[in-house]
Amino acid sequence: MKKLLLNIFIIFLLVNSAAIAKAQLIDNSATFRKINHNSYFRFHYDNDYFTKTDEYYTQGITLDYVHPLIKKFPLAKLLWKPYKSAPQYGVTFNLFGYTPTSILSDSILYGDRPFNANISLKTFLIQVDEVRQQQISTAFSIGIMGPYALGYQIQDNIHRWLKNPLPHGWQYQTKNDIIINYQINYEKQLVSAGNNFLLNATAEGRAGTLNNKLSGGFNFMAGRFNKRFLPVSYKKRKAEYYFYAQNRVNFIGYDASMQGGLFTRKNPYTIAAGDVNRITFQADAGIIVNFKKLYLSYTQSILTKEFRTGKYHRWGGVSVGFAL
């Protein structure tokens, strides 16, 4: 059985690499990241340092807090609940940073990615349909992009701490602008083999001032895990340890991290709309261990060119979570 699961995992990665295949950037609503508690805290950190690069999507920080009382938040009233089951409610703090291929120049690197940072607070819910073996998650984000998101200060302090070359060029980052975004994610079970293998179809839609896109793909889990399409309960669960992988095709309408915000037009430099790649592919793979109240994960991701003169990009991520 272990040999079969390993072979399936390797084949999936090879298919992704050949097809090639955003991990959105960090998508903690996916079934393979599920924590089966009504209340938990999770920290996730992305950095291309894990793949020995320092460019494009260079860093991401996500803090999740899930608790039933969050359903009383005003923004939670905007979230769609299509099923009868009780959803998980949560809030997420997101901080993402982007740079060009070099952070050593004090000049604009035309034809490269612009500097950008954005910070947001997201209210979300996750709801399952046990009968049809499917899941919906919806989210509403508000925030800001530009110098107010402190991208330069954060990267500068990290590089000083690591004794790496200090970043230059952030004076040309995209200007301050408002983030208002709505997101819907859907997953549907296709194949299940007990608690050892699961294959799902996935879809995602986003609309707002940060990005507009549609995505679709597949993900799978292989190892030992609990059933995914069940309402959250407080019953004791078995320890989980498994591989997961997913691939997605993204249809891009607008991306403010490259094109600048919708309300501020006088940016020092952005990617022209005609140079944005409207179709991209992403693949993610990793390992998750979920034991009693502790959650741990490690992820590697790869993304195809986001703009005409760009290139493929890879990054890694780690997560630590605690049920409360």
Results as ranks from 00 to 15, higher is better:
residue 116 N to Y: 12
residue 137 S to L: 08
residue 118 N to E: 12
residue 102 S to E: 03
residue 112 D to V: 03
residue 92 T to C: 11
residue 79 L to M: 05
residue 123 T to Q: 02
residue 36 N to C: 11
residue 114 P to C: 04
residue 79 L to C: 02
residue 120 S to P: 03
residue 73 F to S: 10
residue 119 I to P: 06
residue 132 R to M: 13
residue 48 D to I: 00
residue 99 T to G: 05
residue 74 P to R: 06
residue 127 Q to H: 14
residue 65 Y to M: 07
residue 40 Y to I: 06
residue 73 F to P: 09
residue 27 D to E: 09
residue 84 K to T: 13
residue 117 A to L: 14
residue 51 T to H: 07
residue 118 N to S: 07
residue 66 V to L: 00
residue 25 L to G: 00
residue 78 L to T: 14
residue 111 G to L: 01
residue 114 P to E: 09
residue 67 H to I: 14
residue 55 E to N: 07
residue 38 N to G: 15
residue 12 F to I: 12
residue 39 S to N: 11
residue 8 I to L: 15
residue 64 D to K: 10
residue 127 Q to M: 12
residue 77 K to H: 10
residue 57 Y to S: 04
residue 76 A to C: 01
residue 30 A to M: 01
residue 47 N to W: 03
residue 113 R to V: 09
residue 6 L to A: 11
residue 27 D to Q: 12
residue 83 Y to T: 07
residue 96 F to T: 02
residue 42 R to A: 11
residue 115 F to D: 05
residue 32 F to V: 00
residue 18 A to H: 07
residue 132 R to G: 03
residue 29 S to Q: 14
residue 14 L to Q: 05
residue 88 Q to H: 12
residue 28 N to A: 03
residue 137 S to D: 02
residue 72 K to F: 14
residue 5 L to T: 09
residue 28 N to K: 07
residue 109 L to R: 01
